Simulated assay, not measured.
Amino acid sequence: MNLKLKLLIPSFLLLLLIYLYFIIFNNGANYTYAYINIQKDLFFFLNNKLSQYPNLQFNLTQLGDVIIFFPFLSIFIIYAPKVWDALLISAIISLIVSATLKKLFAVPRPAAIFNNDSFSIIGKTLTGHTSLPSGHSIATFIVITIVLYAFMPKKHKKLWYIFMLLLGLIIAFSRVGVGAHYPLDVIIGSTIGYIVTIIGIKISNVVNLFSCIKNKKNYPIFMLVLAVWSFFIIKKIIDLNLPIFYISLLALVVTLYLITSTYVKKTN
């Protein structure tokens, strides 16, 4: 994936526009209050519309958890290890950026501000001051961006780009549907996810931090990791029993089988 940094320009322009919008409609209020107030009506509107499909929203929002979404790419440990090199680098960068910004802005979640009876909450009620940016949206767009550029078709590139962008936003906005985030949390988080992934891909092209993934001698380690990973997903199935967990588990099991088969053939 040989990408140019100019791909980051639209994302930074979007963040700049959001900042300018915030400045214009701030009206001198406290930044936290202003941030929440300028999107309050949109939050209630989207939450009301999206929460009409609670099962769909609750399943989609699970994809913002790397434990659930990353297994969908686990097969590429075998067939495209460079994808995982970029994926892991991007994930590490995103953890640092997300944790830093959440602590810096300390924006309270919707459930910490609004009457909980005034909007729909699906799943766990989150009341911390960690709303901005949406970590689930960042994680979602790490996967979306990796897939977007790793499997870019030679034809109909614009359609592919639009499809992947819409898919990512549908997943990301489930965070509004379940009442966990404001719309701008999601938009900013998605944009950050895209940015850190482009940077992660660029870094992986220069420095092979996870070159060990290519070495089949390390497959027993991957087999152990995938087995432990599967255990955690099984635990989630026991706790919540959501269809998306079964699909994620299936992806891991298939990868585990293929890695085991490849390793056995190599050693025989």
Rank of each mutant, 00 (worst) to 15 (best):
L5I: 09
L7F: 10
I9A: 14
P10F: 04
L15H: 09
L17F: 12
L20M: 10
F22P: 06
F25H: 10
G28K: 03
T32F: 03
Y33Q: 15
D41A: 08
D41T: 07
N48D: 15
L50R: 05
L50S: 08
L50Q: 04
F58G: 07
G64D: 09
I67T: 15
F69D: 12
F72E: 04
I78N: 05
A80N: 13
K82R: 09
A86V: 11
S90V: 12
S94C: 14
V97F: 05
L101M: 15
K103V: 10
L104A: 12
V107T: 12
P110T: 08
A112S: 15
I113Q: 15
I122G: 01
L126F: 14
H129P: 03
S131D: 07
P133K: 07
H136I: 14
T140N: 08
L159M: 12
L159I: 09
W160S: 04
M164D: 08
M164K: 11
L165H: 05
G168I: 13
I170W: 02
A172V: 10
D185G: 10
I187P: 07
T191W: 02
V196F: 08
G200F: 07
K202L: 11
V206D: 09
F210A: 02
C212K: 08
K214V: 01
K217W: 01
Y219Q: 01
P220S: 02
L224C: 03
N241Y: 15
L242I: 06
L242Y: 13
P243R: 13
L250C: 10
A251V: 01
A251F: 06
S261E: 05
T262K: 02
K266W: 02
